[in-house]
Nucleic acid binder design. Structure first.
Lengths: 150, 150
DNA sequence: CTGCATGCAAAAAATTTGCATGAGG
DNA sequence: CCTCATGCAAATTTTTTGCATGCAG
């Protein structure tokens, strides 16, 4: 692990470009956010951040999360839950989601063919593609086989 | 336009299967929901419903929306806004979204190649695919050309 | 008739905002 | 130093819930 990860420079960049400051809180929140793999909601991030610095207020986490999303370093979505979910936008291998509507299982995957096709579609519509999210919903093997809940 | 649309029977079906009732409110809300094209949030739907029957409470709309989602007739997501967005799950031609992160423009599209590929991926992971959502984010032509806001 | 559904309003949850103080550049 | 950021708490916004009564089956 290198000292400064892939997000550090882009973030720094975005901040200074917009007259914002790289405070200790922002650093810590970003660090925590990017270290955690997968998606997490506000509460999870807030809790994780508080572990390291119990003085950080929730408003700061919300505000930082907003900065991260606006800077393009994070994405927010919602799978069906009540609160917003966040995930790093810059991952070495981008992954999409296969979600079981019965048991909540989430599998991550990446399909080259789809990825390239997305670029085609975007171009056809005059878009410069930056990112995407894709969620496939269905019922997983286990659930199909021995549906435990019904 | 036929009297009863594609959603009527599945809904009826889901309701009776779960011991729920097809009330006038549910009928009206579903009707309004499916008549409106594209995505809409709670407020929009509530307002539209109130136009037809000003006595319906918001709780009922929320509850019905939940029923629609659980029955698989509607999908909820969130593009970045503050509140959940809903859209019919059963459309003749399923569409995905191309979203401009600069100006908020939403273009709907459908790509056969991606669709079929999704099925392959799902099968590979042992999933019985029911539905999916896909959002491509980028900046649109207009925004790219003459970025009006900056 | 019986029990689920509704409307209302209150409650809970999620997110934003105002303000005095602290700290980055 | 000057301005933006923070923490706190209050304010908003969004969604859920309890309860008496209404209505579908």
């Amino acid at each position: 692990m290198s000292d400064d990860s892939a997000w550090a420079e882009p973030l720094q960049n975005y901040l200074s470009k917009n007259g914002l400051r790289l405070t200790n809180q922002r650093k810590l929140i970003a660090q925590t956010f990017f270290e955690t793999e997968g998606h997490l909601n506000f509460e999870q991030l807030y809790e994780a951040v508080r572990t390291r610095d119990s003085n950080i207020g929730q408003a700061t986490v919300y505000r930082t999360l907003k900065v991260l999303v606006e800077s393009g370093l994070a994405n927010s979505s919602r799978f069906g839950g009540n609160s917003a979910l966040y995930e790093p936008a810059i991952t070495d291998d981008h992954h999409d989601h296969l979600i079981c509507t019965e048991c909540g299982l989430i599998i991550e995957f990446c399909d080259e063919e789809i990825e390239s096709r997305q670029n085609v579609v975007a171009k056809q519509n005059g878009f410069a593609l930056k990112d995407h999210t894709m969620e496939l919903y269905g019922s997983c093997q286990r659930t199909n086989a021995q549906c435990p809940k019904r």
